[in-house]
Design a protein around this nucleic acid. Structure first.
Lengths: 179, 179
DNA sequence: TGACGCATGTAATCCGTTACATGATTAT
DNA sequence: ATAATCATGTAACGGATTACATGCGTCA
C-alpha cells in the first residue's frame, strides 16, 4: 500500500537512473530536485537503510571514508513504477512565502512592497540557476521536463512579485488596528 | 522565537481580517488558501485551542451546535506582524505531482503522456476555479494578490503539462530494465 | 425521517527538521 | 596545519495526515 513517502520513491527513482551514495543523493536533491522536493541528509540515511533492509536497493560498492554506493534492485524498480502509477498525486504545494502575501495588508505598504521586491529578486536569481542546470546533464532522462518548468515558474513568479509589489505600494492603505 | 508554524500564523492572519469559527477557517483554507497552504480540521481545532490559551485569540461569540467564533487579540495581531517581518520565508514548494515527472522515463511513453495530460486538465480546471474566487470577495484585503498568482500559475502549469506531454510522447523511449 | 452540512474534537502514526555526534580525505 | 568537502549516522522534536468519535440543526 503506497501511502505518501515521496522521499522514499524519489531516492529509488534517482537510483534507477544511476547508482549513488547517500551523500550524492543529497546533492542531487539539493541542486536539481529542490524545486519539487527537498530532503536532508539526516532523512536520507535512515531511509536508505530501510530500503536496503526491504530489498529495494543493494550495496553495489564500498569506497573511501566508509562510503556505500547503492544500486536499485528489480524489486525496487517495480516499486517506483507502482508509485508512478498509483492514482492521483498530491498537487498541493505548501509555500510559506506565498502564504505571507495573503496577510501583507497587515504591514505598512512600504514594508509589503519591500518584501515582494525581495521575493522577485530571489526568484529571478533562481531562474538563472535552473537555466544553467537545464543546459547541463539531466540527472534522469526525464529530468529536463521539471527543470524546464522550474525556469518558467521562477520567471513567472518573479514577474508576478514585481506586479504585486506595484499593487502593494498603491492599493494597500495603512493597516487598521483592531480594538 | 518564530519556528515555522505556518498554520498558526495563517489562522491568526485570517482572524485578523474577520472573526470566524474553526469550521469557517477550514473552509477558507480549503477554498481560497489551498494554493499556498492546506490544513485539516483536525489540525485546526487543537491549534485554535493553543492560540486561545496563549491569549492570541479570544472567543467573541458562541452559537448553535456548540460553535465558537474566535477573534484576534492585540497580542495575536502583534504576533502575525512579527511573523510577516521575520526574515526569509521558506520558499521551497513540495510537489509530488512534479516530482513524479522526474521519473516519467521509467514508464511507457504513452503512460507518461497520459499522466501529463491528466495533470494539464486538472490545472486548467483549477485556473477556472481561481478565476471565480478572484472575481468574488477577497478573504483578506491582500488575498487577491496570491489569487492572481494562482490563476497565472495554474494556466502556466497546464500549458507546460501539455508541452511536456508532447515531449514525453516523442522523446522518451521504452524504459530499459536494469539487471 | 433521513440526508446533508455545520460543528468540535482525540489518538495514532507518519514524515520531516534541527541539533547533535563523529571521523576520513583532499586541497591550500 | 587547517579548512573544506566527503561521508555516515542518531535523537528529539515538531508538524501534518488519517482514522476515529460524537452530535446538533436544517431542509427536502
Amino acid at each position: 500500500m503506497i501511502r505518501r513517502m515521496s522521499l522514499r520513491y524519489g531516492l529509488l527513482g534517482l537510483l534507477a537512473a544511476k547508482p549513488a551514495t547517500g551523500y550524492d543523493l543529497a546533492k542531487l536533491y539539493d541542486e536539481s530536485l529542490a524545486i519539487v522536493w527537498k530532503a536532508q541528509l539526516s532523512q536520507i540515511y535512515p531511509e536508505l537503510n530501510r530500503l536496503l533492509e526491504g530489498g529495494s536497493i543493494r550495496v553495489a560498492d564500498t569506497g573511501a571514508r566508509g562510503s556505500k554506493t547503492y544500486e536499485i534492485t528489480p524489486q525496487g524498480l517495480d516499486e517506483v513504477r507502482a508509485w508512478l502509477r498509483s492514482g492521483e498525486p498530491e498537487r498541493a504545494s505548501r509555500n510559506e512565502a506565498l502564504l505571507r502575501t495573503v496577510f501583507l495588508w497587515l504591514l505598512e505598504p512600504a514594508e509589503a512592497e519591500a518584501y515582494l521586491r525581495g521575493e522577485a529578486a530571489f526568484h529571478r536569481a533562481n531562474a538563472e540557476r535552473y537555466e544553467v542546470l537545464l543546459a547541463g546533464e539531466p540527472i534522469t532522462p526525464s529530468a529536463h521536463l521539471p527543470l524546464a518548468w522550474a525556469v518558467r515558474y521562477s520567471r513567472e513568479l518573479a514577474t508576478w512579485c514585481d506586479w504585486a509589489a506595484d499593487r502593494a505600494a498603491e492599493e494597500l492603505g495603512t493597516p487598521p488596528a483592531p480594538r
